[in-house]
């Protein structure tokens, strides 16, 4: 299967393991991702909170490049990139005068904007049967809390998922043999881009999410967004220093949990670069995965 790939900035930096694990997994699932040539930042939070046109234009440049490259479908593994690209696509299609203005700004024409998938929708498209077929290890003892965060399924109607009770990620994770837990915070905000400027807020919000997952019996959290991962994994260090009774829990990218089921080890998937050590037994017959 061919698909256009918009990695997004994090995949080259703070979320390198997300990119690494994703590429390994896609290879096994016979998917050949084509990177958008010379893609640039989607504008992220900082663009849309300061200038509407800047935000539209930065995303539109990437959509125009994808179209020029002949890509009919693209996927963005970062939930925030996905949301920005899709929001721009919808606005450009709904407001022709705005589209004209943005075309002038980016000096590119936009005619047929590609279909845009988030990573969960894209794995749905590949199919859980395909994942089950290629599965080498049954992740039976995983009790996964699937965390959607804000931008995978909102605003309501952005894709086929229910914006209050989505279930698509659970469906994919179950294909690895893992159990998924029912919990309350799968859509609660982690504080997102406030991580640096208002770390206090992010620590509070992330702690609530992690506590709820643990309370409902999870032994791992699965995410589909570099920002969510950074707040839920890295910020556990800060949570621990603020709340001495806090119990830590590992956080995996969706591509990493799939990778484990497909037989890759922690290092091949970059799981060893997380802040919270991942030491769940991957096979039922062993207590500890060798490093």
């Amino acid at each position: 299967m061919q698909i256009g790939y918009y990695p997004g900035c994090s995949q080259e930096g703070t979320a390198k393991e997300y990119d690494k694990s994703l590429r390994e997994v896609l290879k096994v699932l016979d998917v050949d991702p084509t990177e958008i040539n010379d893609w640039s930042c989607c504008g992220a939070t900082s663009a849309h909170v300061t200038s509407h046109k800047l935000s539209l234009a930065l995303s539109a440049r990437n959509l125009a490049l994808a179209e020029k490259q002949g890509l009919k479908e693209i996927f963005a593994p970062c939930a925030a990139c996905y949301n920005r690209l899709l929001t721009s696509k919808n606005e450009l299609q709904e407001h022709p005068e705005q589209k004209y203005e943005i075309e002038t700004i980016i000096e590119e024409k936009i005619n047929n904007i590609p279909e845009i998938y988030n990573i969960v929708n894209f794995f749905q498209k590949i199919g859980k049967d395909k994942i089950a077929e290629k599965k080498k290890i049954d992740l039976k003892n995983f009790k996964a809390a699937c965390y959607y965060g804000c931008l995978l399924v909102r605003p309501s109607g952005i894709n086929s998922d229910d914006s209050e009770q989505p279930n698509s990620m659970e469906e994919i994770v179950k294909a690895t043999g893992a159990q998924t837990i029912d919990w309350n915070f799968k859509l609660e905000c982690c504080g997102a881009a406030h991580s640096i400027a208002r770390q206090d807020i992010v620590v509070d919000l992330s702690k609530k999410i992690l506590d709820d997952a643990i309370k409902h019996g999870a032994n791992v959290i699965v995410v589909a967004c570099p920002m969510c991962h950074s707040n839920l994994d890295m910020r556990q260090q800060n949570i621990k220093s603020k709340f001495s009774d806090f119990k830590e829990i590992p956080v995996l990218y969706l591509s990493e949990i799939l990778g484990l089921a497909l037989g890759f080890d922690k290092k091949q998937l970059g799981i060893d670069t997380h802040f919270i050590e991942f030491n769940l037994p991957v096979r039922n017959d062993v207590q500890e995965v060798s490093a």
Binding site: H52, C150, L151, C189
Partner: peptide, 28 residues
């Protein structure tokens, strides 16, 4: 400035008012 753009409000509004987008505009 504290609005995180999580879109919970925009998803739930009974009038379909996109409050997150509105917040962006007030900031701008």
């Amino acid at each position: 400035w504290l609005c995180a753009g999580c879109l919970t409000c925009s998803s739930r509004c009974p009038k379909n008012f996109d409050l997150a987008k509105f917040m962006d505009a007030v900031r701008e």
